[in-house]
Amino acid sequence: MGNTSSMLTQYDIEEVQEHCNETFSQQEIVSLYKRFCQLDRSGGGFISSDEFLSVPEFAVNPLSQRLLRMLDGLNFKEFVAFLSTFSSCATLQQKIEFIFKVYDLDFNGKVTFNHMLDVLRDLTGSYISEQQRQQVLTHVLDEAGYAKESSLVLADFIKILGSSGLKMEVEVPVD
Rank of each mutant, 00 (worst) to 15 (best):
G145I: 00
K77P: 13
T124G: 08
F36T: 00
H19N: 07
D175E: 11
V172L: 02
T138R: 12
K34R: 00
T138A: 13
G125R: 11
Q132M: 12
G73V: 00
L137D: 02
S126D: 14
K167G: 05
L105S: 02
E143D: 10
K95F: 05
E15D: 07
F24E: 04
L53I: 11
N75Y: 08
S164H: 01
D72T: 02
Q65N: 12
L74R: 02
N21Q: 10
E28I: 11
N108D: 13
Q131G: 15
K34V: 04
H115K: 02
L105F: 11
S25Q: 15
K148D: 03
S48H: 08
S150G: 11
S42I: 06
G43M: 08
Q38I: 14
I29Q: 02
L83Y: 04
L166C: 01
E97H: 03
H139R: 07
I158M: 13
Y146H: 11
Q17C: 04
E149S: 03
V170W: 12
L67V: 02
L154M: 08
M1S: 12
R66I: 00
K159L: 14
R35P: 09
F58M: 04
F100Q: 08
Q65T: 08
Y146I: 02
L74W: 08
S48V: 08
S88N: 09
Q93K: 06
A155F: 02
